[in-house]
Design a protein around this nucleic acid. Structure first.
Lengths: 371, 371
DNA sequence: TTGTAAGCGTTATCAA
DNA sequence: TTGATAACGCTTACAA
């Protein structure tokens, strides 16, 4: 308590050894509980380390042990906006990346369970240099969709453990983890057509360079046609982004173009479903009475929207977690990692498709109701 | 093209030097563009590095240069749920952490601009050990609210550059970055009382161990009383968490407890405002006609809710960015970092408070309308 | 059980 | 302009 605090800027293992009167090897062994030490020396070392508040230098440890205990996650950051209208744009960007956030969260949680930390890096699409440099700082790479062109993926994957996330799943060179987009959209199509007998359908897509968006659009279109409903070219709108605002704008334009409007609109994510609903309502149209609307993702607020949103649940956090598990398996060679993983999606039926929900009562907020 | 690819597991600077016929010192100089090299040797080195796809080992570089170019961000992860009802719980957890996600995003973006990566680590509240160990892997620490008890903060801050985020702002030992919670809640109180002449008000708080929640509750209560409206003990509900579901439950319980209900309910975040609105509507009450509801955060979907949510915008991304800027200033001693930063909040008036919004037309989706 | 010493792959300081 | 060579702080044989 009244002891003068030792003033060593940042103590090394040598300082601890000196204070405890042992060699650095002993300190290392004690601190890593490797080998056996006499209880007495053990205590001396521990005391010394505590007194100096010793924290091992990560770089040195990594260099020596050849293991970094770090996994890097690379994602695409939308290009920076002009300064000025900053705040509003930030809000939109935020919407845009909700999915990435969930993946990050899941990955971080899984990494932690394996004893790893997550190194985060947003890059511009195609930025090979920074992606590559992360290789030197981590034991393995998780690369989100759209970060690298496929030939780059191949050459990187040859040199370092790497998992490709949420892409088309077509890479031959890297392990891949993704979600069953196709199954989800087929379920939506079946529901709209089979249950609600809708015939004229449309799709609101996200950024058109995204395989996720493309796959969902394609799956929906082919399911719709296969089920005998129509899907006219005019009604395959492509919004500029994944946001509610972008979708609302696209919907307004479509409304101005004049009737006949489709009877049902499937959106590539939940935020866009919100935007579409908003625009329809502005124009005096009712959802779902006049037009049915569905989403994709099942964001937490989906069940509280009006009307509660029918959507597809995709396990975004699990996506990140599985990627980490795979990467750890590759790095530690503990178990043979699966080559390609496809996680299931589930239709979540609420009211925006036209299904009746007991608007009062606790029904609509009860997960059991939603299957 | 038809050259046999060199097979070196992971090439070092020695391999590059050998291939280029120079010393490792020269390789290092060329690659870091330090000092001058003859163009000819320069090219030889660059070619060799390219051919081997050389990527410097981060650990070695860090150890030698004493700079890691890594900033760590520590946040509290809610305790893990029991396996079993996994999916639904994940959805809730997700809601809960939106704020943290934004901070992370802002921090990552700022870090990147300074040339740093972000090391992410979720911990359980009070987990000193892992927090400390991050010290060894990074140049500085950003510690989110609730991670460490204050005496730990002090001792850690003495040993490593560190910024405390979104806390009470009371730490004497560490730099602090937070948001003007008080100003935001005062604006809400003034609006509800001054503009809408409401007299019986209530507050829906988040987790009660959170300084953010506490500060908002306190600020609202004192503003309300100062303005001559009433704030009765019975109506200071505390929901178990920050989620829509938790708030809906709390609201249902309050409704069951019987009238008189408050005329206005201020919530500590937007998600809870959604839950409160949902529960009120279940009970046949109209928002805002019967009860006004407000939020805090201004999440992207807020303007698309029904009714569009009156709330307080807080610059979550900027919070993370400022923390990083401060940390970098501390680490590089480039500029004197500010000791305590308080970022402004802004009232965003929409309709859930009782203000009229043109429900049709583009007004409600137009940011300019909202001040 | 403990200590000595050889790496780990860089950067950086000297000489040459 | 280049090349030896000494750190950097740790882990880990190998000896004692």
């Amino acid at each position: 308590m009244d002891r003068a605090p030792l003033e060593i800027a940042t103590p090394t293992i040598y300082d601890v050894a000196a204070l405890a009167g042992v060699s650095i090897a002993t300190v290392s062994r004690v601190l890593n509980t490797r080998g056996h030490a006499r209880p007495e020396t053990r205590d001396r070392v521990l005391d010394a380390a505590a007194e100096l508040q010793f924290v091992p230098n990560g770089a040195a440890r990594q260099l020596s042990s050849r293991v970094k205990q770090v996994l890097a996650l690379v994602f695409v950051r939308p290009p920076a906006k002009e300064p000025g209208d900053e705040n509003d744009d930030l809000a939109e960007v935020e919407t845009d990346l909700l999915f990435t956030d969930s993946v990050i969260r899941g990955a971080e949680a899984a990494a932690q369970q394996h004893g790893y930390s997550l190194l985060l890096r947003g890059v511009h699409a195609g930025d090979v240099a920074t992606t590559t440099s992360l290789t030197g700082k981590s034991d393995g790479l998780i690369v989100l969709d759209q970060v690298l062109p496929s030939h780059r993926v191949a050459s990187l994957a040859a040199r370092t453990p790497m998992v490709l996330l949420a892409g088309s799943g077509r890479s031959r060179s890297a392990r891949t983890v993704r979600v069953d987009n196709r199954g989800g959209m087929e379920a939506i199509a079946e529901h709209l057509i089979g249950t609600h007998c809708l015939h004229r359908l449309a799709f609101m897509a996200g950024i058109d360079s995204s395989p996720d968006s493309y796959t969902r659009a394609e799956a929906f279109r082919s399911a719709v046609e296969h089920l005998g409903a129509s899907f006219e070219e005019q009604d395959a709108w492509w919004s500029a982004d994944w946001t509610a605002a972008g979708a609302a704008d696209a919907m307004r334009r479509r409304i101005e173009a004049g009737p006949p409007l489709p009877e049902g609109i499937a959106c590539a994510n939940d935020q866009m479903a919100v935007g579409v609903t908003h625009a329809l309502r502005e124009a005096g149209l009712r959802v779902p009475a006049d037009v049915a609307v569905t989403g994709f993702d099942n964001i937490p607020l989906a069940r509280y929207l009006r009307p509660p949103l029918t959507t597809v649940r995709q396990p975004a956090q699990q996506l990140g977690a599985v990627a980490v598990d795979t990467l750890v398996a590759m790095t530690e060679r503990s178990a043979p990692p699966p080559r390609n993983v496809v996680l299931p999606t589930h239709l979540v039926v609420r009211s925006s498709c036209g299904c009746r929900t007991n608007g009062r009562g606790s029904g609509s907020a009860d997960p059991r109701y939603e299957q």
